[in-house]
Design a protein around this nucleic acid. Structure first.
Length: 646
RNA sequence: GCUGAAGUAGCUCAGCGGUAGAGCAGCGGUUUCGUAAACCGCAGGUCGUGGGUUCAAAUCCCACCUUCAGCUCCA
């Protein structure tokens, strides 16, 4: 039997018979490993455990904690679900069924039948039944023609459509029990590995993601190797719901969304406005240090501005209908740029003046489809912490790095560590979607990449994610439900300066074009605060907390002293409230705990006599008595440093 | 916009053919209390809107509006 050499992740190497499988190798190492193994990585590719290895290879056994292991687990789970569906609903046509970040889904066409919660339960039960049979997942290679024939006989048009793109290639099928699917794998050794199963929801999804296609039914599910892990997962999902910014925003009176005003048009309540203003002040201060100039522009503008900018054709579907005034048409501004360009162009600029950094918290309006609206994270009126920076080509990279630095400071200050950075480039196959000369795009994408490299950003590249006028660096944060939201953004723009004929006079006395950087560290205050609420579970750091402290008197006999403490803190600039309700102290404490107020200051006989306050910290409990000055100095310090902990 | 689900008091929810219910919040009173809910009372709703079926509709049917989940699209 010929031998092959297998190299392990630790660098060690061992000889095996040719045709050995990953599972056999795992068994050779330990029984426990073989039990936990889900898939195997062979020369960087994820393979089935029982696929034969016929060449020298580097190899890693993948378990639950490896992405590749989870991927195989959920991929196999999708097949198991499809198998169950086929048994319960014969004739179902299958779309695609991939693993996703936290589970898997399968898109299916059931004809006229709409799935109910009851159906989901039945499918789930059937899956458990099939898992108990422990059928192996068997890989089979077929010619393209045989594959098409199979699905023609099975009358599965979606699979045939998928095959169209694989013409001429060797096709792989996977069988488990009586179910067969087109699939490049990899899969678990057998269905019995899937022990804990929960189907979560069913929703519509267009075939191949296009609005023009038929809508299929998509079933989302999650599976785990053990019941404990499933329970934990369900607990996490419920925990996440508790952090939902829409729920917390209502409970804590941060903002209001009411159909009486209109969908996606948030009203900021006094407590939410505190957060908003604190964030604005924070950024304004940082920007001042960096030479930004504040400007203010109106909420509407002549439609010609947007025709010049090119927003009008590109954004047509996402703008509100123009308003007519004395034969002129005005648009609710979908962006701030054209206004800022007019400010730049209002006087001649010298190369010595550049960079010019114009900044505004500018409210923009976009007509989003009703189904897109979502709390504060997707609205129709939002305020961009916008700036347009007019720079010379030779200043561009340095300015970009400066902007990235600012965004990092913003994210750091707020404790956002779990974010992704995407370099959003245009899709070269779809050039008509974008404005401007080819050469400008090549230059802009190069500039962005170099700046990102120099700023040591850990990024990935998103093809087709660019704005129509230029490439971007996007900062993306996940919300509690695992949805990704783009917050901060930096964009390089050679197109707009051209369209608006922006100029500066160079040292050579000639006219030159500036480059524009569009940037917004928060992205929009609405979305940012929405994500922030979930990030902190509305337990904000002291500098952002709408109410920083509440003074609670034990009984009404101590109202005078409580008022004294309250006035003193108020005078020092602390956001403090006085609880002089005729209630027991336990009641008041519970109330302020639920409001997530950082500090409760309890005063009664002892405190009045000693001229102190008893400090209780949110979620932490009684910290004991403290001198009034000591407490004030402590919280002023915490606020000033924007400390994340109390 | 599309597919599906849901709309009952400020909030959370029960009622699912026989003349609207609870808890919390609010208001009035009693209580004067030491670290997560004292007690008594009062008030509060054209049951999302409009049509229909019925002797009778929150409840059944239809349309529309809004919200939620997902898809598509985006800061």
């Amino acid at each position: 039997m010929p031998k092959i050499a297998i190299t392990f992740p630790d660098g060690s190497s061992k000889q095996f018979d040719e045709g050995v499988t990953g599972l056999q190798i795992a068994e050779g190492i330990s029984k426990g490993l073989a039990r936990e193994a889900l898939a195997v990585e062979v020369n960087g590719e994820v393979w089935d455990l029982n696929r034969k290895i016929v060449m020298d290879a580097s190899l890693k056994i993948l378990k639950w904690n490896d992405d590749g292991g989870k991927y195989a687990f959920w991929h196999s789970s999708a097949h198991l679900m499809a198998a169950a569906i086929e048994l319960l609903f014969p004739g179902t046509k299958f779309g695609i069924g991939p693993p996703i970040e936290t589970g898997f889904y399968y898109d299916i066409d059931l004809g006229d039948h709409t799935l109910t919660g009851d159906d989901l339960r039945k499918i789930e039960e059937k899956m458990v039944e099939l898992s108990a049979k422990d059928d192996p997942y068997v890989r089979e290679e077929k010619t393209w023609e045989d594959a098409v024939l199979y699905f023609k006989e099975k009358k599965d048009p979606y699979k045939i459509e998928l095959l169209e793109e694989l013409k001429g290639q060797t096709i792989t099928f996977y069988h488990s029990g009586d179910f067969t699917d087109l699939c490049y794998g990899p899969h678990l050794p057998s269905t019995g590995r899937i022990k804990a199963i929960k189907l979560l929801s069913v929703a519509g999804a267009y075939w191949r993601g296009s609005e023009k296609n038929k809508m299929l039914q998509r079933i989302y599910g999650a599976t785990f190797p053990t019941k404990q892990e499933l329970d934990q997962h369900i607990f996490r999902l419920e925990e996440a719901k508790r952090r939902d910014h829409r729920k917390l925003g209502q409970e804590l009176e941060l903002f209001l969304l009411t159909p009486k005003v209109g969908g996606g048009l948030p009203l900021w309540l006094p407590k939410g406005t505190v957060i908003r203003e604190e964030l604005e002040t924070f950024l304004r201060t940082e920007q001042k240090k960096r030479g930004y100039l504040s400007v203010v522009t109106p909420h509407i503008g002549n439609i010609d501005l947007y025709k010049t900018s090119g927003h009008y054709p590109y954004y047509k579907d996402s703008q509100f209908t123009p308003v007519k005034v004395e034969d002129e048409e005005y648009l609710l501004k979908p962006m701030n740029c054209p206004h800022h360009f007019q400010i730049y162009a209002s006087k001649p600029r010298s190369y010595r003046d550049l960079p010019v950094r114009l900044a505004e918290f500018g409210t923009c309006y976009r007509y989003e489809q009703s189904g897109e609206l979502n709390g504060l994270v997707r609205v129709r009126a939002f305020t961009v912490d916008d700036s347009h920076m007019f720079v010379r080509q030779d200043q561009l990279k340095e300015e970009l790095i400066g902007v990235i630095d600012l965004i990092k400071i913003v994210f750091d200050t707020l404790g956002f560590s779990d974010f992704k950075t995407r370099l959003s480039f245009r899709d070269p196959k779809n050039k008509e979607k974008y404005g401007g000369e080819d050469s400008l795009w090549i230059q802009a994408e190069k500039d962005i990449k170099e700046a990102a490299d120099e700023a040591k950003l850990n990024y990935f590249i998103g093809i087709g994610e660019a704005a129509f006028y230029g490439p971007k660096i996007d900062f993306i944060v996940r919300d509690v439900l695992g949805r990704n939201w783009q917050l901060g953004t930096v964009q390089v723009d050679y197109v707009m300066p051209e369209r608006f004929d922006l100029e500066y006079t160079g040292a050579d006395g000639q006219k030159h074009r500036p480059v524009v950087i569009h940037r917004a560290p928060f992205g929009s205050l609405e979305r940012f605060i929405g994500v922030l609420i979930e990030h902190f579970a509305a337990e904000f750091p002291l500098w952002l907390a709408p109410v920083q402290a509440a003074v609670l008197s034990i009984t009404d006999q101590y109202f005078d002293y409580a008022t004294q403490v309250f006035e003193e803190l108020k005078k020092a600039g602390i956001r403090v409230e006085l609880d002089d309700r005729n209630e027991k102290i336990g009641y008041k404490i519970r109330d302020w705990e639920l409001k997530k107020v950082p500090y409760m200051l309890v005063v009664g006989e002892k405190e009045r006599a000693a001229n102190t306050i008893s400090v209780r910290q949110h979620k932490k409990g009684d910290l004991g008595a403290m001198g009034r000055d000591t407490f004030l100095a402590k919280i002023l310090d915490t606020i000033q440093h924007k400390s994340l902990t109390l």
